[in-house]
Design a protein around this nucleic acid. Structure first.
Lengths: 129, 129
DNA sequence: TGCAAAACGCAACAATGTTGCATTAAATGA
DNA sequence: TCATTTAATGCAACATTGTTGCGTTTTGCA
């Protein structure tokens, strides 16, 4: 396995993801690091960051892919994909609700590898009161 | 609202989705109705069928979009997106497990509109015994 | 400071989805 | 059965998102 390097592009991408309070898509990330690196580099950096467990990949209800910082889990262990993602239909932001773990009981004939729950609706800050 | 028509393309697309025992993607559907209509028509027919509640749209764990027949729900009511999708990592098929309803309790500040759970793993027919 | 290879930029390509517009064909009523 | 209305189609062109190959640059380490 190769030794990861801490490059400018990687720092820029990770910084944008870290400083955002919701999950970002590749185009959004590229937009925010504008000029720091090439479009292709963003893709490659994202892949690497996912492999290094620094960020994780979230698929939204519409199929768009977003990336967010792993907050509750440290980098040393494989990310546990058993928590919930909330996708706001108003502001389009995606939050991880990591304290809400999911337990589903399926027939023994199904072997579960990964659990993937996204709930769409209206988040607290978008509630029209 | 416009009156939907029962066209050849629509029949062909619906037939392929109906006769498949797992969810199909747009490319798969286009491949199967080959010659019956244009690629663009498949997209438009799929959108219409979703709006008419004849089929439903499933996003896989990798972000690919698949379409399946609504079996348990009739066409007259809005589809309830509160059941579970099982995505097999071996045969790539997606099944709806409609009997497994999901109930998630979130803080009242979150308004849930749609629940979207996909579990990936190995389905019964792909189990190496 | 020099070296190996990790990472990058660029160009080209591929897959997937969208839009506009002229043409075709379903459903309905005469 | 035929004419009419407009839903639906086909085609071309475009947009977005993601991938691959390859020569060049840069990082981390000795």
């Amino acid at each position: 396995m190769s030794i990861p390097r801490n490059t400018k592009a990687k720092q820029a991408v990770l910084h944008e993801i870290s400083s955002s309070d919701f999950a970002l898509s590749q185009p959004e990330i590229f937009e925010r690091v504008k000029g720091a690196c090439d479009r292709v580099t963003v893709y490659r950096v994202l892949d690497r960051l996912v492999m290094e467990n620094k960020i994780h990949k979230i698929v939204n209800v519409d199929g768009t892919i977003n990336y967010a910082r792993c907050t509750s889990c440290d980098e040393s262990h494989t990310h546990a994909h058993d928590h919930l993602h909330f996708s706001c239909i108003t502001c389009k932001k995606i939050e991880c609700l990591e304290e809400q773990l999911i337990h589903v009981k399926l027939p023994d004939t199904y072997q579960i590898k990964e659990l993937f729950l996204t709930i769409s609706g209206t988040c607290p800050s978008c509630q029209a009161t």
